[in-house]
Design a protein around this nucleic acid. Structure first.
Lengths: 244, 244
DNA sequence: CGTCAGATTGAGCAGCTTCAACGTATGTGG
DNA sequence: CCACATACGTTGAAGCTGCTCAATCTGACG
């Protein structure tokens, strides 16, 4: 499908690995359509066996699981350029759901097309594989943050990670980005109660570390936030080390 | 390399995906050696750029990251049959370390051999890819447990997961398995202090839910443990659903 | 018998949760 | 334009969960 802007995906890839013009155009031609999902909607659900993979073009998406006691744990936040659902290609059955945190537009690529793409270009297969491993790497880092950091540090870690990831795709400037997420959702990412999420944000604001209003985050003191979060960006595998 | 017993890997794969005899023998012939790592040793370290991937044959291995404040967070426990370090193939640089929790023997496969294997058999490439996604799936589940479960529930979750995973490779019977891990290490997995780990185990023992002595775990009441842990094994992607 | 790793215990405190109420902005129907 | 509803953020109080520090116990082993 021509005329679709996949530049965020390409930027994301090229920060880590060469991508030829031919590869770009074969990805482009592999896209067979787009899906719009409104805020709160699901793209795929636990138990589904998707026949296509989805790639986020605009908006913010989440992976999440529900616990039996009603708690929702968000296990990933996806930004434009993320090949959100690539992993349903080798894994087949969804063990969790993917939903739209804000209004989202996804490009879709059918699994049969993916099959064809990797058959004709093994290097592209490795690129796709790498993309899914990047997600895994972020999962590991979130585990480190969950297990080892306090609520304020964890919050700082997340918001700083998103700064770097959004910058790669041109959706953040040097110190802030649009982030239309409420405190409940943030709490579900960080494993906190909404009340404590609120107090944690107040704490960070009070320290002069960040602003978070009008659906926009500003990191007022990136240095100190990184320090608080014990942030080490190696896990993002960015080529030129802006990950500090 | 012939004469090496890769049956645990094969069992692990075949619980999820067909694996032909030809594929088995090409994996076998791809193994170029073994490495023994004593308890406490590292197989690969953060920052390494391995030229080979390692596959655990015996023992228990961990992935872990160190925080600047000295805390160690273990992000994965690997059991025999796990292709521990497969992900260094597409991702190249290690962002964390892999160590031996007990004395370990690994088989090694060089990246150039992996390249050749996936070139000649794309289905095998997908199998390898799937194996790394399985690890990612377990990471996600651990995130859910970290964010949403209490210390006893998290502990129950981990020990039950290991029961299922070890059963697949024939290293657990119906209710228990060898587990030569001390409480400090368990605490580093679960994000707890050693003191609280100790009290949590006492609690579970007191409830008649498990035994954990002489380097062996016995789950005395699997039903209630699963319930406490809100365990749902879908994330392990086992074909015949023993995952309950 | 001394040593050492690992397990256990007690006491006090900090971080986070829960419940419940209240504030504030935005939108909607009459 | 007002009255009300809704979503979201904020606050207070009380209590539990898990942490830290520090000491003691236990079994294995040289």
């Amino acid at each position: 499908m021509k005329g679709l802007d996949l530049s965020s995906l390409f930027r994301r890839i090229e920060k880590r690995r060469p991508l030829s013009a031919a590869q770009k155009s074969s990805i482009e031609s592999g896209v067979d359509g787009t899906i719009s999902v409104p805020t709160g909607g699901d793209v795929v659900r636990e138990g589904d066996r998707p026949a296509k993979s989805t790639l986020l073009l605009s908006g913010l998406a989440i992976r999440y699981s529900m616990l039996r006691d009603g708690k929702r744990q968000i296990t990933a936040i996806h930004v434009p350029g993320d090949f959100v659902d690539l992993h349903s290609f080798p894994l087949e059955i969804m063990d969790h759901s993917v939903g739209a945190l804000t209004d989202c537009i996804f490009a879709t690529v059918s699994h049969s097309t993916l099959e064809r793409l990797i058959q004709t270009d093994l290097d592209l297969a490795k690129t796709f594989w790498m993309l899914t491993l990047l997600d895994a790497s972020i999962h590991r880092e979130w585990l480190v943050a969950m297990g080892g950091l306090s609520a304020p540090a964890r919050t700082a870690h997340l918001l700083h990670e998103l700064l770097l990831r959004l910058r790669v795709v041109g959706l953040a400037n040097s110190d802030g980005y649009d982030f239309a997420v409420n405190q409940e959702e943030l709490a579900d990412v960080l494993g906190l109660s909404t009340v404590h999420m609120n107090r944690t944000l107040q704490e960070l604001r009070g320290q002069g570390l960040l602003e978070f209003q009008q659906r926009r985050v500003r990191l007022l003191d990136v240095e100190r936030l990184r320090d608080l979060a014990q942030f080490d960006g190696k896990y993002l595998h960015l080529r030129d080390d802006e990950s500090f």
